[in-house]
């Protein structure tokens, strides 16, 4: 037997809301802040790149969930213990997996993600190149209109200045 989806969804909601919806104002609490401003700035930078696990898509720096609080404290503890930024992230990833990284790591699974934009750009450029080759190349330049001519066109069209746009 499988649990009906409705029940699971309700449970998921309860888990989420029970933990999450209490105080939607301030994420980082004064008690968490480190006295060393350099370390604190690093902690903030790291926190903003770690995804809160119980929330709907927020970083732990923005979230009010208790787990986000615990993780922020943990990040600061690791920094105080002398970890580098990368080591702190590794510490969290070792427990929760790559899911917590808002900046996805450069691994086999994410090659398409990281190379995708460049590939798309190259494909679009190639398409434009083919487009140019297909069309018979550069058009011959007609002799430009003299001032006299463009003025008379304006008068004929009854819209002075109109020719400006297609200059």
């Amino acid at each position: 037997m499988k649990l009906p989806f409705g029940i699971l969804a309700t449970i998921a909601m309860l888990m989420m809301f029970g933990a999450d919806m209490q105080h939607p104002a301030i994420a980082v609490e004064p008690s968490e802040v480190l006295s060393n401003p350099v370390l604190e700035a690093r902690a903030r930078a790291i926190s903003s790149e770690l995804r809160c696990l119980v929330c709907q898509n927020e970083s732990i720096d923005e979230s009010n969930a208790p787990l986000a609080h615990d993780l922020r404290v943990l990040v600061r503890k690791r920094l105080l213990a002398g970890d580098s930024n990368a080591q702190v992230k590794e510490y969290i990833v070792a427990r929760y997996g790559n899911y917590v990284l808002l900046k996805p790591p450069f691994i086999e699974e994410t090659y398409i993600l990281w190379f995708g934009p460049l590939a798309l750009l190259l494909a679009a450029t190639a398409a434009v190149f083919v487009f140019y080759k297909r069309s018979a190349g550069v058009p011959p330049d007609p002799a430009p209109l003299s001032d006299e001519e463009s003025r008379s066109i304006s008068i004929l069209l009854g819209e002075p200045g109109e020719h400006e746009e297609t200059r």
């Binding site: 903003s48 970083s59 997996g97 899911y99 808002l102 699974e109 993600l113 750009l121």
Partner: peptide, 29 residues
């Protein structure tokens, strides 16, 4: 290309998950 990139980034977690390669997040960075 920018629109396609936003689409790729937004849906990439879904692709990776569907292919059974685990769950990842694609965020602001």
């Amino acid at each position: 290309t920018a629109a396609a990139t936003v689409l790729l980034g937004t849906l990439y977690p879904l692709f990776v998950d569907a292919l059974g390669l685990g769950k990842i997040s694609v965020g602001p960075p």
